[in-house]
Design a protein around this nucleic acid. Structure first.
Length: 749
DNA sequence: GATAATCCGGTTTTT
DNA sequence: CCGGATTATC
């Protein structure tokens, strides 16, 4: 990762290791299924591995097994992950088993491996091996430019929408040539595919790729009959292929794998259909189902012994996910004997979001007092905006916390500006980077001057830097602009000249100082200027670890992660998506309300697909916990500063009653508060009643309301009940209109 | 070419 | 209601 990405390393040729005895030590301690997954090396294998069933262990042991038993040399193995973190972890763990050989494995993310292959064969798709990898921001800007040039009304046809469509096409492995011209529907009067084609052409002239291209271009090469030798070479090279998080692969990735594995068919995919939560990004759970069809005779191995969670948590997760119809079917069972089922899952109803936050933080502190370290606890939310209330509460109580995810270092404005300078230096054809910094800091090269450069570049089909170089030879520009631009170009040249002799960190510092970018923030008096300067320092420091500037840029493009070490003593707050693959002793799952979780947008979708994905997300959340789960929902929530009442999530009803406990026997709104109607929170009685879950109507609360009753609600005032569905009421309020409310929150008026 | 005014949208986001 | 992004205005 840290070396020069353009280096065309090839396999070293040391002698093969001696074959090791078949009953090797690394197989010890695996359960029979795990062992089977490790030892079934030949032919297609699908490992369905539930949460907490030792997936990573199986993957790493399998790699070690193949190497140590002499079946293949490390460089004959291709191992693909989704995140850099997973790749790093895997390499470390394999290294622990087989030592330095782990370094030689072709191991990385789909995108990193795609980039590596593509740099070798860039010429075959009209690129130079030093191509730039654009981030989403640049992609959008580029597409906007294309649409503008084509006279497409960006108001009527938002570029974002087309960007999304193009990304989905790329996820499906479809370049423009493989699309019907009208595939984009009405968009821009049916010109979506044409715009896609133009966008791809622009990328090529800029010598750039977007993320999707890293795989799509590979596919194009692999599928081209004229380059069968290239594919054949890799097919021969990669004798064993391993894929992690298989449920998250998209069609392009699937095709990529299938082509590579076609001849020897030693393809092992590990995944869990119940944890597929990225379909909105193009992931196809269908790839799992397809597997057995495309690779007949595939061994299917199920890992169902869970070594992470208590029986109660497993029962809750299984009960919930059992409501999904579209799944392969897998049941988690405790992998180790347990003395008891463990604590029940706590479900708590709160008045509003603020109170929910207060309760959660109180429980966090209570757990802390019982000896659970903060680092072993996490609050998992559905969406980013939910973190605010918890942060506020944690700040006032002084509990250390960290919001995991959020803005990433290289995505910050200052980082991106600085990176644009580096990109222009490293890759003169990078127009997007050029545009970003040509007038930053302000040097009087405004729209007019830039327009002239653009015009020339367009007419001559040249990159902007090159067009600018021609332009400064003419009298096209005003003398001042001409001189400024000439000076800037001279700077670029000088910096490029330094590339060979100067370390990347020193070079970066020089570029930032001489360009005036550092000065821009030094002059700035705004409170965040200091922070930005520190970011720049950090950026330069990060460069120390790299041998070359292009190497660093590759890292930045492909490794968009926060290197947040999870060691400190703080509570983690993150989205459910961000929590996949992690585990904690105690997990808090707030905001289980209809419209929040499951999210409104998922509910509005037609069919059950969206809802099932939300449910898988809930399953992921539950299965993060080793010992305890605290769920909650608030009756009222302020969204966009408007009070909205919300009903408890249907997912709460889907948790088997036997393992759930409604917290607080007094109930927050139950007895004592004066006629809160004794809703389901009135105590644990109703909830503990038998097992009738899901669609069975919940038992009506004693002293429940009837249609027509006049009731009072704290936030909405008085109203009359229109409809009643169990404890959920539809009420026509005198002032607030018709609202759905849970009965615990109203009283007879 | 830089500020002020206004309009829009406001899940999730491994790369 | 807040924030950003585009537009209007000086």
């Amino acid at each position: 990762m840290m070396s020069d990405p353009f280096a065309l390393d090839d396999e070293p040729s040391d002698p093969p290791p001696a074959a090791v005895s078949p009953s090797a030590a690394w197989l010890d301690g695996l359960n029979p299924e795990q062992r089977q997954a490790v030892e079934t090396t030949e032919g297609p294998v699908l490992v369905l591995s539930g949460a907490g069933t030792g997936k990573t262990r199986v993957l790493t042991t399998r790699l070690a097994h193949i190497i140590a038993s002499g079946k293949a040399r490390p460089w004959n193995i291709l191992a693909v992950t989704f995140t850099n973190k997973a790749a790093r972890e895997m390499r470390e763990r394999v290294g622990g088993l087989v030592g330095g050989a782990a370094e030689q494995i072709w191991l990385g993310t789909f995108h990193a491996l795609g980039a590596k292959l593509l740099r070798r064969h860039a010429g075959l798709v009209g690129l130079d091996s030093g191509f730039t990898i654009l981030d989403t921001d640049d992609q959008l800007r580029l597409l906007k430019q294309v649409m503008e040039a084509e006279g497409v009304d960006g108001k009527r046809w938002p570029p974002q929408a087309l960007m999304h469509t193009i990304q989905r096409w790329k996820d499906q492995g479809k370049p423009p040539a493989r699309l019907k011209e009208d595939e984009g529907g009405d968009f821009a009067e049916g010109r979506a595919v044409a715009l896609y084609r133009l966008y791809q052409e622009r990328l090529r002239t800029l010598n750039a790729c977007d993320f999707g291209d890293l795989l799509l271009h590979c596919l194009t090469i692999f599928q081209d009959p004229a380059h069968q030798d290239v594919l054949a070479d890799y097919q021969r090279r990669f004798k064993y292929i391993l894929v992690d998080e298989y449920q998250d692969t998209n069609v392009a990735q699937y095709l990529w794998l299938r082509l590579l594995a076609q001849s020897h068919r030693n393809l092992c995919c590990v995944g869990d259909d119940d944890q597929s939560i990225y379909s909105w990004r193009g992931a196809e759970v269908g790839n799992i189902l397809r597997f057995e069809r495309d690779f007949p005779g595939a061994a299917v191995i199920r890992l169902e012994s869970n070594y992470r969670s208590t029986p109660a948590i497993l029962a809750a997760a299984s009960g919930l996910i059992g409501h999904n119809a579209d799944r392969l079917g897998k049941t988690l069972r405790p992998g180790l004997p347990h003395a008891d089922d463990g604590d029940k899952l706590v479900v708590r109803a709160l008045w509003d979001g603020e109170e929910e936050a207060r309760w959660v933080v109180e429980e966090v502190e209570a757990q802390q007092r019982r000896g659970v370290p903060l680092s072993q606890m996490a609050i998992l939310v559905r969406a980013g905006f939910q973190t605010r209330e918890f942060e506020e509460r944690l700040i006032t109580t002084g509990v250390p916390y960290k919001v995991v995810g959020g803005l990433r270092f290289y995505e910050r404005q200052d980082s991106r500006d600085a990176l644009a300078y580096f990109r222009v230096v490293a890759q003169p054809a990078d127009d997007l980077a050029f545009e970003r910094i040509v007038n930053l800091p302000k040097r009087g090269l405004g729209e007019a001057s830039l327009q002239a450069v653009h015009l020339l570049a367009r007419s001559q089909g040249l990159p902007l830097t090159q067009a600018a170089r021609l332009l400064v030879e003419t009298d096209e520009l005003k003398p001042k602009a001409r001189a400024t631009l000439a000076a800037l170009l001279a700077d670029f040249e000088r910096w490029r000249g330094l590339m060979a002799g100067t370390g990347p960190a020193d070079l970066a510092q020089t570029v930032l100082d001489e360009s005036g970018y550092t000065g821009l923030w030094q002059k700035e008096k705004s409170p965040d200027a200091q922070g930005r300067l520190e970011n720049l320092k950090e950026l330069v420091a990060a460069l120390e670890e790299f041998d070359t500037l292009p190497g660093f840029l590759e890292h930045v493009a492909l490794v968009m992660e926060n290197d947040s070490r999870s060691d400190g003593a703080y509570l983690s707050i993150m989205t459910l998506h961000g929590a996949k693959g992690l585990e904690f002793d105690v997990v808090f799952l707030p905001g289980w309300e209809e419209g929040v979780f499951p999210h409104q947008r998922a509910l509005e979708e037609t069919g059950a697909r969206g809802l099932e994905e939300e449910r898988r997300l809930a399953y992921v959340g539950l299965t993060r916990a080793r010992r305890r789960v605290f769920l909650s929902h608030a009756g009222n929530r302020r969204i966009y500063n408007q009070w909205q009442s919300s009903l408890p999530s249907r997912f709460l009803d889907e948790l088997p009653a036997a393992v759930v406990e409604k917290s607080g026997e007094t109930g927050l709104f139950g007895g004592g508060q004066g006629g809160w109607g004794g809703g389901w929170n009135g105590g644990s009685r109703a909830w503990r009643a038998e097992e009738p879950q899901a669609w069975a109507a919940p038992a009506p609360p004693e002293g429940g309301f009837a249609v027509g009753d006049k009731v009072f609600h704290q936030k909405f005032g008085t109203g009359r009940i229109l409809n009643r569905d169990g404890n959920k009421l539809e009420i026509a309020f005198d002032k607030a209109g018709v609202k759905k409310v849970i009965d615990s929150f109203v009283s007879l008026a």
